[in-house]
Design a protein around this nucleic acid. Structure first.
Lengths: 250, 250
DNA sequence: CGTCTCATTGATCCGCCTCAATAGCTGTGG
DNA sequence: CCACAGCTATTGAGGCGGATCAATGAGACG
C-alpha cells in the first residue's frame, strides 16, 4: 500500500517561501530562515512512515500532505491534512519517533526544519510562539471536531463536515471566501479520512448532489450550492467553526 | 445532559502541588509558581463548556478531567482524559473560545494558570518548553491512535485499546508497572470515549472477562489477566505504544 | 424499604461494509 | 487510430456489527 520514498536529492530546487502560499503570518526575516530549508516533494511520495525516527518539523509552503495511521490488517485512517501554512511535527511522546505516516497528496514545497534548529527558533523570532500556539490550538479543535463525528456522526454528517472543513481551510489559505474548490483526494482517501468505505462515500455524496446541496465535476471539484443545508448536515455553525478550526490571523 | 457548574469560591482551599501527583517533571521553583494558582474541584462539576470564553490553562495535580464535545442532538463524545501531570489548554484557533467541554470525573486539584501568566512562564522556566512540547506530542499521538480506532476498529479493538491506554497512562502517573487499576468512568462514559453505546461496551467487556483477558470488580476496577491478548485485541505493541503516548521523563 | 443509578442480557432493526459488476477516464503501445 | 490495461467512480445485492428498545438485576443511599 505504501508508495516508494521518492525524496531524491535532485528534487531539491530553489523554490522559495513567498506570500500567498500560506506564509502571510511569517515575518520577512523568518521567511528568509525558512528558505534555507526548502524541499520540493512529488505527488504520491511518502515522506515518513509511522514508527520511523523523525528529526524535523515540516512547514508546508505549497501542496497538501496527509498524516495517517494504519492497522496491522492494512486499514488506513487519515488523521489530518496539512495545507499551506501548516506546521507538521510528527513526533510522539518520546520526541523522536513518528506517530504518523506522512504522504504528499500533490506536488508541493516544504520547509524542513531540523529539531535542533526548530527548538532555538522561538528564541530568535518570538512571533513563532504565538503563531505556533494558535496553529496548535486550531489543529486540536479541528481534530476534536472530527473525533466527535467519527464517534457519533452519521455518514452524511461526516462527509458534510469534511467538506465544510475543507471549504474553511482552503478559504483560510487563499484569504477569501469560496464556494468552489478542489480537493486532491480519491473517494477512497476521503473515506479513510471520515471513517467510511469509498463505496459509502460515493453514495453519500451522490445523495448530496441529488438533493442540490453540492455539485461535483471532474475529479473532486466541489461546488457548494446550498451552504446552509451543508452546514446543517454537518451539524455546525459555520462562523463559530471558523473561529475554532483555523488560526486567527495575527 | 450537562451538569451544573459548581466551581464555587468556597471549594478553593489550600491544596498544594507535590511530587507523586504527576508533577515529578516540574522543578521546585515551578511548583512554587503553580502553588499560587491551586483550585480544588468537585467530582461531576463542569469547569468549562464548549464555546465559552476561556482564559487559562489547567494543570492537573490530582484527579481526572474529561474533555468532550456534543452534537446538537445531545450525543456526547469524550475527546480525551486529562490525568495528573497533564496540561489542558481548551482554546481553539482564535485563542479564546473553548473547543471542548471540561468535566471533573473525580474530586481533584488543579493549577489554573491564566493565559497572561502562562505565556510569560516559558521565558522564566525554560524547562517548560521541552516539557510542554513532549506533552503535546504525546497527546497528539494518543488522539491519533484513538482516531484510527474510531474510524477503522471494531468494538473489541476500541475497548481493548482504551484499557491499554489507561493502563499505560496510569502507570506513567504512578511511576511503576501496573496490571490492576481503577477507571473513574461509567460504561456510558467509556462508550462516549470509544464511540460505542453503553450496552455494547458492556457486552464487549463481558466477553473479555469470559475469555479470561481481564477481570472486573466493583465499579470499573480492572485487572489485566492476559496483557498479551489484550494488546493483540487492541492491535498495539505495548512497548512502542508507551514511547508514543506518554511523554518521555526528562 | 423505596428510589436512583448503573450494569446486564435479550430481541429486533438498520446503517454501513463487503462483494461484485459495470462504466468512464487516462495513458500506453501497436 | 484502436486496443488494452489500470484506476476510480458508480450502482446493486446481501450480510453483519453495533444501535436501540426493553426488562431485570444489583448496589448505594436516604
Amino acid at each position: 500500500m505504501f508508495i516508494e520514498f521518492q525524496f531524491a536529492e535532485d528534487t531539491i530546487v530553489a523554490a522559495r517561501v513567498f506570500p500567498g502560499m500560506g506564509v502571510e503570518n511569517l515575518s520577512t526575516k523568518l521567511q528568509t530562515e525558512f528558505n534555507q530549508h526548502i524541499r520540493q516533494i512529488a505527488n504520491n511520495s511518502t515522506l515518513l512512515i509511522e514508527g520511523d525516527e523523525c528529526r524535523a518539523v515540516y512547514f508546508v509552503v505549497g501542496g497538501w500532505l496527509s498524516l495517517s495511521k494504519a492497522l496491522a490488517e492494512g486499514q488506513n485512517q487519515i488523521i489530518d491534512f496539512a495545507l499551506p501554512g501548516d506546521f507538521v511535527d510528527p513526533a510522539g511522546g518520546d520526541g523522536m519517533t513518528s506517530s504518523v505516516t506522512i504522504d504528499a497528496l500533490t506536488d508541493g514545497t516544504l520547509a524542513v526544519l531540523p529539531y535542533r534548529r526548530w527548538t532555538t527558533m522561538p528564541g530568535e523570532w518570538p512571533e513563532l510562539h504565538s503563531l505556533t500556539h494558535l496553529m496548535e490550538a486550531a489543529k486540536n479543535a479541528r481534530r476534536a471536531e472530527r473525533m466527535l463525528r467519527l464517534g457519533k456522526g452519521t455518514a452524511e454528517m461526516r462527509v458534510a463536515y469534511a467538506l465544510v472543513e475543507f471549504c474553511i481551510r482552503i478559504a483560510s489559505v487563499c484569504g477569501s471566501e469560496i464556494a468552489e474548490f478542489h480537493i486532491p483526494l480519491t473517494q477512497q482517501q476521503l473515506g479513510d479520512f471520515v471513517g467510511l468505505s469509498s463505496v459509502h462515500v460515493c453514495r453519500t455524496m451522490r445523495r448530496m448532489v441529488r438533493n442540490g446541496v453540492i455539485e461535483m465535476s471532474d475529479h473532486m471539484d466541489i461546488r457548494v450550492l446550498d451552504s446552509r443545508s451543508l452546514a446543517r448536515l454537518a451539524g455546525v455553525d459555520i462562523e463559530s467553526l471558523k473561529r475554532g478550526i483555523v488560526p486567527l490571523r495575527l
